[in-house]
Design a protein around this nucleic acid. Structure first.
Lengths: 331, 331
DNA sequence: GTGAAAGCGCTAACAC
DNA sequence: GTGTTAGCGCTTTCAC
């Protein structure tokens, strides 16, 4: 029903080999044949069937990105960075969202197992280190944004500990000493590392840790509000808050406003990620920027290198972050 | 190098046909063979190569969604709705972002032309009606969210004209009469239709149209701010604003705040889409909800039906919207 | 410079 | 209930 390479060959009066050569730009085709073939392709509106090509080549030139949640500006920016680089070098990026659900993630990983894609980048995963290491033996996978402790798999993230440290130092520099932390639960390595940075900053400034100033739950936005509600109900509420994501920070700010506080004056808040909304919030949100394009480009570049490499690069790369101060910290 | 159906057959001491039958759950396999095959698959860690299967079957069971911009909560919600339904009926959804760029969109459409996916849903497109109609002759495509005038292609959207009308009526009901409009430029059909609804609402309430109250540019968020800046600098500024997207509305609100206005009191704003951020803004944002899950499910359902149908469904479906009033309109 | 043909991994029609 | 085999569309080796 659809037109194949054979049809083109027959119509052009050449062999399928010649058509294939034209298609792939191989040398050793006379200009006259090439022209004839190109015209025939045009005339028949032929488009090569990549299922045949990919089967033959054992490669698809497609990379799958699996996101834990789709509704997150950060991930989309990273994917955009990946795409820009990948397209330049002849690859396509497709993405799918696992809703942070293991069964959905596994379903999507099947595209890797069944050879529908050449490699996968995980922006967060429910797999443990052991499973990932096992997978990496047979397939090309990489982690981005969110690392997994003990996984010897190509990984690209910011230096979360240092970034957390820097965020808190920015608050300390404003003169705040009662600083609270809103994090995700223990499964999120990035959050734990940012918490470590938070603790180190306090320690280095001789500030004791106040247990009530640490709130940890999931990344769901309502937890920002819950955290802020708890903080503001304390006898001695914090003067500043560091949240491990902009979403949590925004939700916290919203709650603070509801409770009559002026954010940036009564209480300062700094988030993490620098998503687009930061500049549209009221007040605008201070944050730690993750350089999304760079991260996306680097991880895809290394992953593609791995496709054709005998000994895979499984290193852990960190990319420089940047603290951005806006109105929510009184700037 | 990777294990194939032949390896499984050899190891299990059966033919490849039997293995294939087990794989596809066809009848006519003795329980003993089936068990043996399943064990062998497990033991060899075999995963079928879908390139072979898809080539043979002329189908991939994958649908591609092309989004004009990735960084938009609305699209992600629609994709989530698609995915939930698609997975239930044995399909996978993958997505890619065209950055509203024709060349990128064409690149992604190639996955359809080269048979890497069975169908495509466009959440906005740079193709014109004629091209779409031509494409629809040979391929399974659908539009969602954003229609194209004159395209006889399966389409699912809200009733944009009525939704615009309803949004403005909500503002009128609050007693406002000087109502402004922030829209996208003429290429966005949804925006034009919402504008028609805006105009009809004014007309039916005997309110003359004020040219200065209509601001049209791109969907880029800065235009919300620019519009608001213009409105507030008028001799007689509007009392209320209807923006065709929440992003534009948020940006407008942000600017109004900067200019010393209290949104919801000094000026009311209603957006469109009901993205997640609406409830986290300060003030929370009134809007017109697009029922994303439903839209996603419907368009995918019809598209899949089309795959196996001789006469394709190319109808235009509209799905019920809902006005949601929050603080930005003084509620 | 060109063509014939093998074969990528799989399914399904056919034969037994 | 099972096996043999053709063939999906393509690339590439080999021969000329």
């Amino acid at each position: 029903m659809s037109v194949t390479i054979k049809d083109v060959a027959r119509e052009a009066g050449v062999s399928v080999a010649t058509v294939s050569r034209v298609l792939n730009g191989s040398a050793n085709v006379s200009e006259s044949s090439a022209k004839l073939v190109r015209e025939t392709i045009e005339r028949l509106n032929y488009s090569p069937n990549f299922l045949g090509r990919n089967l033959r080549k054992c490669a698809t030139n497609v990379i799958l990105v699996i996101m834990p949640t789709a509704d997150h500006s950060l991930y989309m920016k990273i994917v955009a960075g990946m795409q820009e680089y990948a397209n330049k070098v002849g690859y396509d990026i497709i993405s799918a969202s696992s809703n942070a659900t293991n069964s959905v993630e596994v379903r999507q990983m099947n595209m890797l197992f069944n050879r529908t894609v050449d490699g996968v980048v995980l922006l967060g995963t429910s797999y443990d280190a052991q499973t990932l290491n096992k997978l990496a033996e047979n397939y090309d996978i990489a982690l981005c944004c969110e690392s997994v402790e003990g996984a010897n798999v190509l990984t690209v993230t910011v230096d979360d500990e240092q970034a957390g440290y820097d965020a808190v130092c920015a608050l300390l520099k404003k003169g705040h000493r009662r600083i609270a932390f809103i994090g995700a639960d223990y499964t999120a390595v990035s959050s734990s590392k940012r918490e470590s940075g938070y603790l180190r900053a306090l320690r280095e400034h001789g500030i004791p840790v106040t247990e009530e100033y640490i709130y940890k739950n999931t990344y769901d936005c309502e937890n920002g509000a819950l955290a802020m509600e708890k903080f503001l109900s304390l006898e001695e509420p914090p003067e500043a808050v560091f949240a491990v994501s902009d979403i949590l920070a925004m939700s916290a700010i919203r709650k603070a406003c509801e409770m009559g506080k002026t954010v940036g004056k009564d209480i300062s808040v700094i988030g993490f990620d620098n998503i687009t909304m930061c500049e549209m919030m009221n007040p605008t949100l201070s944050t730690v920027e993750q350089p999304c394009s760079k991260m996306g480009e680097l991880v895809v570049r290394r992953l593609i290198d791995n496709f054709s490499s005998a000994n895979k690069d499984n290193r852990y790369y960190t990319i420089a972050h940047r603290v951005i101060l806006r109105e929510s910290t009184g700037d």
